[in-house]
Design a protein around this nucleic acid. Structure first.
Lengths: 339, 339
DNA sequence: CTGAAAGCGCTTACAG
DNA sequence: CTGAAAGCGCTTACAG
């Protein structure tokens, strides 16, 4: 036989019609058991696999989800944020469990990104993953919603009316970090990260943190905040600039682990000891966090559960079921950087 | 308009035939420039995207590559080896550059893995990524080759006759590590990793290392070798067992960075100082390597180039061009664990 | 430069 | 339980 076998080839060998082959392969109850078995046997012998393009075209669905991974354009080109890599892993697993394929696409937020995976029938739905600087893309998102594209966002709501979100309880995570530092009386705290509406996740972490401090009658100083995107490099420079400006603090909350790791490097370089002089708390609990020196105390996000919820909710949305925004509980992992 | 627009809708609005629309959208030179422009405008207005299922079915190709990521079943389920994650990133980028989509699938080597992406026309070719324990799967690979499936393997040759491989020069990398340790007169060396035909990459690293030692008149002791798969945990336990057996050494070469990191933990725990008492060299240069304490000396694999070569070679294979096995040069990154 | 028509390989309503 | 037939939305050889 030349080329791949088709259902017609099987029909020929099985002595039935192609329709019956199709039914048999899909285990339709309409088909006689013996016929079903014969068809399956022949299919196996011929190494037949249903042509996905044909079946997708016919059924108008793809059994595929697309993952768009948004990266900060200023981040180091070669390194992808390990937190998202972990998410990618859990999303892939969750897709496999549900019998879906996963199409992965990195999107540089600087470029004109494209989400035509559903329009072109390559995917039934889209998962958006990134540190949530979705503001600039509001227009694009609106059109996604208008076109009734099925998608779910990680981290932050894009358009509070109509999109679906799965996120960590970033506000609650900020509170956890604050409670921890307050317990150790490390009340003079710096914050590193972009606490603006451009980084809704970072902003929520900061808010929870700040509110908890406020409840203890302590207000965080604006002067002790430094802007940073989620890279080690950026955390390093932000912390350096605080030090260079003679800003003092005895604890530091970083909006992400990468930032925290960069901050620790800057502190060490300046002769400031962690944790003796400054307690440091990060966010994410990436794999590296336990290996840095000192090991990093951090607010953990459950990536396995996150992946399952993203995929699960998206599939519900595709099936037309009712879905609600999901908030996942964070947990504090205490390590050497804060005691 | 209900549902997605089709080329017939555009034809209707543009006042031309559907054939012309198809040609215009594909920028066929046969089409009148003004017609072409009009069709494109209308397509944009209707937010039309070519249905990939239909075009793939028609052209019998998918513009998609599949990446099968093999994991060691004994590895921690949640954590994916960071080296492969880095490869995944560079492969995704390389695919995007070439205009291909990437389908990602994790395969547990314990389970009966499937490579029907090409058979089912979901992908034009397959990339296999893993630490190369392909021996048990020889039969499966043979059938892939028989069925003329287009695939390229990372790391190690599967079937020396007919498959295509891109790999790091693991042997040369082993030599680099040996040369480095010999220069510091750390001649009493332990090796951690599976140096058997089940891990061809690890085996080659060990061979290069051993041969370089031999050229200096030093033979490595079998007693100073311990088996480990590529996890921190496994490296930790392997090293612990050496220590428990009172095996002495003043340097340690680990088959991967994760193993090396676990080894360092075991050494520290036993009160053995790195690098003072034992110099440690790893392999891969994963992101963590520079953050551990002490920072890890390691043999770097160029993942960016690796991704480009895997994708590039696979596409050549698909196009029927001549392709040869590719060996990428490693480089030594010297850090605090070895001086 | 354009159009009518065939056909890629399936799934499924319809008829028996 | 089975078969003949329509049709998913394209691409492209063929005819003009």
């Amino acid at each position: 036989m030349k080329g791949k076998a088709t259902s017609f080839d099987i029909a020929h060998y099985a002595g039935v019609s192609q329709s019956t082959v199709s039914r048999a392969l899909r285990n339709s109850p309409l088909v006689n058991e013996e016929t079903r078995r014969r068809v399956h046997d022949i299919a196996k012998q011929l190494n037949y696999k249903v042509d996905k393009n044909a079946s997708n075209l016919r059924t108008q669905q793809s059994s595929t989800l697309a993952l768009l991974l948004f990266e900060d354009p200023t981040a180091d080109g070669s390194q992808i944020n390990p937190f998202f890599l972990a998410m990618l892993g859990s999303i892939t697993r969750a897709c496999a469990t549900e019998g879906y394929d996963l199409l992965v696409s990195f999107q540089s937020t600087s470029a004109d990104w494209q989400a035509d995976y559903e329009d072109s029938h390559r995917a039934d739905g889209i998962i958006l993953l990134g540190y949530g600087d979705y503001i600039d893309y509001q227009a694009k998102f609106s059109s996604l919603i208008e076109q009734n594209t099925k998608f779910v966002c990680w981290g932050a709501s894009v358009d509070n009316r109509s999109d679906l979100t799965v996120s960590c309880d970033n506000y609650g995570g900020g509170e956890l970090a604050a409670t921890h530092l307050l317990k150790a009386s490390r009340k003079d705290c710096a914050f590193i990260g972009d606490a603006s509406e451009h980084s809704p996740e970072f902003f929520a972490r900061y808010q929870g943190f700040k509110d908890e401090f406020n409840r203890h009658g302590i207000s965080l100083s604006e002067r002790k905040m430094a802007n940073a995107i989620s890279t080690e490099e950026s955390g390093y420079h932000a912390t350096r600039s605080l030090i260079a400006n003679n800003i003092h603090f005895n604890s530091l909350f970083a909006a992400s682990d990468l930032i925290a790791i960069g901050a620790i490097r800057a502190l060490k370089e300046a002769g400031i000891k962690v944790p003796e002089d400054v307690h440091v708390v990060g966010f994410d609990n990436i794999a590296v966090a336990s290996y840095v020196n000192p090991p990093l105390t951090t607010v953990q996000q459950d990536t396995t559960l996150a992946g399952q919820m993203l995929v699960g909710n998206l599939l519900k949305l595709i099936r037309g079921e009712v879905v609600e925004n999901t908030l996942l509980p964070p947990s504090l992992i205490i390590r050497g950087s804060s005691f």
